[in-house]
């Protein structure tokens, strides 16, 4: 990898890590969401360097354009106060759990890097990671898993609709149909 390439990688990686750290440490939830956006965009930059333009574009469309916006939306509707819970309870047990998890993950990474032989990457063809190659792979070689995963997403969407629909109360309509309840509200 040439100098500019590795410089690009290190800048993107550093920004991604900084964004990730800021996401979990930000006290203000909106700033956390914006840090997540920064991380997502720099990971899309990393995809670009790996000749995965399609993946980079999808990363921006789905994560930056939809999911982060959804986060912002929810935080803005709920308001800052409901989500900024900084309770000091069980701080010791939490710190211990986080340290344990971090140590295990780090150990796993070290183990994998140390034990496994370097990956023999196959020579990539021209157009690898482009829209043609991914489309061909998804709709010919891997069509069954692709369809299964879309069915899974469909189930999730239907489930979300079903759960949300159960809670809808219509105060105006119920008040109109039962005149008794409407008169009770005005003592």
């Amino acid at each position: 990898m040439n100098v500019i390439g590795s410089l690009y990688f290190y800048v993107c990686a550093a920004v991604a890590i900084a964004g990730a750290i800021a996401t979990v440490t930000a006290r203000n939830p909106i700033r956390g969401a914006v840090s997540l956006l920064v991380m997502v965009v720099s990971i899309a930059g990393l995809f670009l360097a790996l000749s995965a333009e399609f993946l980079a574009a999808i990363q921006l469309i789905v994560y930056a354009g939809a999911i982060v916006v959804l986060f912002l939306f929810v935080i803005m509707i709920l308001g800052e106060s409901s989500s900024s819970v900084h309770d000091k309870k069980r701080i010791v047990s939490r710190t211990l759990a986080a340290a344990l998890l971090g140590a295990v993950s780090l150990g796993a990474i070290v183990l994998v890097v140390g034990v496994s032989t370097p990956l023999q990457a196959p020579r990539i063809r021209a157009g690898f990671g482009g829209i043609d190659a991914i489309g061909r792979a998804l709709f010919s070689d891997w069509v069954v898993p692709f369809e299964l995963s879309s069915a899974l997403l469909m189930v999730a969407v239907l489930g979300a609709v079903a759960i949300a629909k159960g809670d809808i109360k219509r105060p105006l309509e119920s008040a109109a149909t039962t005149p008794g309840s409407a008169s009770e509200e005005q003592p």
């Binding site: 956006l37 921006l60 469309i61 930056a64 354009g65 939809a66 829209i131």
Partner: peptide
């Protein structure tokens, strides 16, 4: 002249919302 063409447009259009 990008390989992803129109997807680049969609990717950018989403950023304005933020």
């Amino acid at each position: 002249s990008l390989n992803v063409g129109i997807l680049y447009v969609f990717a950018l259009a989403g950023q304005g919302i933020v």
